[in-house]
Amino acid sequence: MLAYAPAALLFGVFCVRVLRERRRFGNAVLLGLAVLCALAAWTLQLARSDSTSGLVVAWSLVGLGSLAVLVLTCFLFLNGLQMVRKEGRSPSNLLSLLAALAILAVIALLITAFVVRTPVLTGVAATVGGIALYVSFLFLCFVCYAFLYGRLRVRRGADYVVVLGSGLVGGSTVPPLLASRLKRAQAVHARLARRGSAPVLITSGGQGPDEDLPESHAMADYLTAQGFPADLIEREDRSTTTEENLRYSKAIMEKAKPDYRCVIVTNNYHAFRAALTARQMRIRGQVVGSPTAAYFWPNATIREFAAILVSYRWTNAAMCSLLVLGGVLAWWTRSNGTG
């Protein structure tokens, strides 16, 4: 049981950090490390047992892992084709397809390096494989914790409900993606109103170059058409990005009530990254997500993860540099071994 102590310790630290501040990417990494340590301890326990069942379980895990990679690759490839067919060939819509091709390329490189066994190819494969494992680990941490974050209830009351804009169709029409945010905001508002005084709902979004009016105005019109009281809506109509959505909405809330509390509403794939941004801006509130079309979710999740990698670029650059050094070491060891 001592082998499970690191996993238990990491999980304990994870729980404490979540209770203190759930809007941290470090929480996702801690949870991933706890699960990884638990799996390592279990594998070690199986390896130490001389029973045939232990070997069967170990090889079954390897087989399931390989099958999972194959299924994931096929799923991403098919999802990428579906995204192109439904949403067009813009770069942001090709992420699922590119991810599937990247997985195939890494597998092909590793197999080639194993067969050919040249020093240079060994070093390159070690570097690429290490970076692939690192990014895959972070991605799994992100997906699992984002799923968990979206299911943690907001138990405090709130003075404001902030709805983040996402663009209009035809210059003036609220699209289904944005409509789902507004419907979730109405549900959150109704729940908070039952606890006490009704909060103010802030629609946040400026006017894009291809839009006939600011997103916040179209969002407010959509809500009033659904019967929502117009006197409980405030419009933030200057923002063009998520960061500006949050910054300008924060200014409105702080001006009216410096000790405000809020709930921010976006789509479920975007909720965790919006929460990280809100924490960086010291906004007092959590983020909740609304449903997203199933075909759109994988590509959007990859895009959100890529944005988080960029926001932590220096940490990731340092880790990748270490992995490159590991690849150089593998090349050097192989060169001396064959020389």
Rank of each mutant, 00 (worst) to 15 (best):
L201N: 07
G208R: 09
R238N: 02
H217C: 08
G206R: 00
S239H: 01
A198I: 09
L192F: 11
S197F: 06
G227K: 11
G170V: 05
L223D: 09
T240V: 11
L201E: 04
G206E: 06
R181V: 14
K250M: 04
P176R: 08
S166Q: 01
S216L: 07
R235P: 03
L177S: 05
A198F: 13
S180A: 15
M253A: 02
V200N: 00
V174M: 05
M219I: 03
V174W: 06
E211A: 10
R184A: 11
L178P: 04
A187C: 00
S216C: 14
G227M: 09
Y222H: 10
D210L: 00
V188P: 00
E244P: 02
L246K: 13
E234F: 13
D210H: 12
A218K: 11
L232K: 15
Y248L: 07
D221Y: 02
S239I: 00
S197H: 13
S216I: 04
L178I: 04
D212E: 15
T203P: 02
A185F: 07
G171W: 12
A218P: 10
A220W: 05
S166A: 15
L178V: 08
E244M: 07
P229E: 10
P176L: 08
L182H: 14
L182Y: 10
A187P: 01
V200Q: 05
D231F: 10
L213P: 06
G208M: 13
V169S: 11
A225E: 14
A225L: 04
L192H: 05
T242V: 07
L177Y: 12
G167T: 07
G171R: 08
I252A: 01
L246G: 12
A230S: 14
G208K: 12
G196L: 00
A220V: 04
D212R: 15
D237S: 14
A218D: 04
V174K: 03
S166F: 00
A220F: 05
T224S: 12
E236G: 03
T241A: 13
E236M: 03
S172W: 00
L232F: 12
S166M: 05
G170N: 07
A190L: 09
L246C: 10
S180R: 15
R194M: 10
L177G: 09
M219R: 06
L192I: 09
P199A: 09
I233Q: 08
E215F: 09
Q186F: 03
L246S: 13
